[in-house]
Simulated scan of single mutants.
Amino acid sequence: MLKAAIIGSAWRTPLGSNVGEVVDRLLAGERAAAVNARFDASAYTCQLAAAMTQSVAPSRNARFLRRMGLHAVAVAAEALDSAGIKGSDRVGLFFGYGGLRAHWDDLMPAFERQEAGGANAWNCGLDLLHPFWMLQHLSNNAHAIAAQELGARGEGATYGGANAGAQALGAAIRALAAGAVDVALVVGYDSLIEPETLVELAARGACVAGAASPATPYDINAAGFVPGEAAAALVLQRPGEGECIACVQAQDAADGEKGEALAGTLARLVRAVAQPGDVVDGAGLARPEYDAQERLAAAQVTGDDAALCCIMSAMGQIGAASSVVQTIALAELLRRRMLPPIAGLQRAAGGPLRPLMQAEATTARSAIGLCAGAPGLAGIIRVELA
């Protein structure tokens, strides 16, 4: 299976922005779940969130990009800088984004005073919409602005959906293998903690209810995940063309489900990518039946005794950013020869794989990271030390 070498990275996560410091916090078992700090969510089913606290620098791009898009452009620039790469016609740019969503904090003021039949619609609130409102919703805004600012003029694409990070990684790896680009910059960003996402997550019972500290994925009392957000970027090149941090493979899949992808879809990805002895970073949906099926699917390839960790337990579910964040975190963890505990895990459910209750040393040189989301989307990455 095709792979690429990782030569640079950057991220913004609910646990911080410095890769080393965030991994320290993962190893310490820290968890970012707290009462939603983005807005008053007391009237929502899910009142918890793993929110980023980093501010964005003032930018002219704020006319076209919201907060997460600005973070995405920033991490793209930082990742290229960390790799010592300058933009050119041979630098490709591949973006993974959660998808087109109408932002309620824009829409609600514009529609709350509207009259039946739409009479006088402009003066009843539509005049409150920003002139660039539709442009601010374009899925490829951040991609276009990053390409212009960084000079990344090579081949590339924007992918949407809960597994868009895996899609973008897979496309970048194929572009490198085909010789279409010499360097690939891959960016994934998403937020699941806004009103428009929280309502949808609650409607299908995906997120935890209430404001009390919830049980974690793979706990016997798990009852839904904590939504989170992140922006992350990787710089890739062909293996063997210089020093690298690690190598990565990626694959995505879809099965048409209205909710999260079936566990069988994850199993298909595991069979295609994983190898015996791989550490497993789970999808962490925190639904006992799904968690159990996921563990069984992974163990059939990695072995029953493979270590099970869960970055999403610490950071919350981060949608399209998942595979890019997992790649960065697992590469650093393998390099340190340490694995993190499942943050907050109290009573691990029985089954194959070893859910980690505390940080432990490892001799493993490879790990897989799984992600799953609606509608019926799944992804996998495999990171291996070079």
Rank of each mutant, 00 (worst) to 15 (best):
M1S: 15
M1H: 13
K3Y: 09
I7M: 08
T13W: 09
S17T: 13
N18V: 10
E21N: 13
D24F: 12
R25S: 11
L26E: 05
A33P: 09
A33F: 10
R38L: 15
D40T: 10
D40F: 13
C46M: 11
C46E: 06
Q47R: 15
Q47A: 11
L48H: 08
A49W: 03
A50H: 06
A50T: 02
Q54S: 15
Q54T: 13
Q54Y: 09
S55F: 04
V56M: 13
S59M: 09
F64L: 15
F64P: 04
H71L: 14
A72P: 11
A74W: 10
A79I: 13
S88A: 14
S88E: 09
G92E: 02
G92S: 04
A102P: 03
E112D: 13
E112K: 14
A116K: 15
W122A: 14
G125E: 02
L126W: 08
H130M: 10
H130F: 06
L135Y: 13
H137A: 12
L138R: 15
N141G: 11
I145S: 07
Q148R: 15
G151F: 11
G151N: 02
A152I: 03
G156W: 01
A157L: 12
Y159I: 01
N163E: 14
G165V: 08
L169H: 05
L169M: 12
L169G: 00
G170M: 03
A175K: 05
A180W: 12
D182A: 07
V186H: 00
S191P: 08
S191Y: 07
P195W: 15
L198Q: 04
L201Y: 07
R204P: 03
C207A: 15
A215P: 00
A215L: 06
Y218E: 01
Y218T: 07
N221V: 05
G224Q: 03
P227R: 07
G228D: 00
E229D: 12
A231M: 00
A231T: 06
A231P: 01
A233P: 07
R238P: 01
E241M: 13
I245E: 10
I245D: 02
A250H: 04
D252T: 14
A253L: 10
G256N: 10
K258C: 14
A261K: 03
A263L: 04
L266T: 03
L266A: 08
R268L: 12
R268N: 14
V270T: 07
V270L: 10
A272V: 05
V273K: 05
P276I: 11
G277D: 03
D278T: 02
G282E: 02
R287H: 12
P288Q: 09
A298D: 02
A299K: 01
V301R: 00
T302R: 02
G303A: 09
D304G: 03
A321C: 11
V324F: 03
V324M: 02
Q326L: 15
A329E: 08
L330P: 02
L334I: 07
R336T: 08
M338E: 14
M338A: 11
L339C: 12
P341H: 02
Q346P: 00
Q346I: 12
R347M: 11
L353D: 05
R354I: 04
P355W: 04
M357L: 14
A361S: 15
A361C: 15
S366T: 08
S366A: 06
S366D: 01
C371Q: 06
G373A: 09
P375R: 11
P375E: 13
G376L: 00
A378C: 00
I381Y: 00
L385G: 01
L385V: 10
A386G: 07
A386S: 14
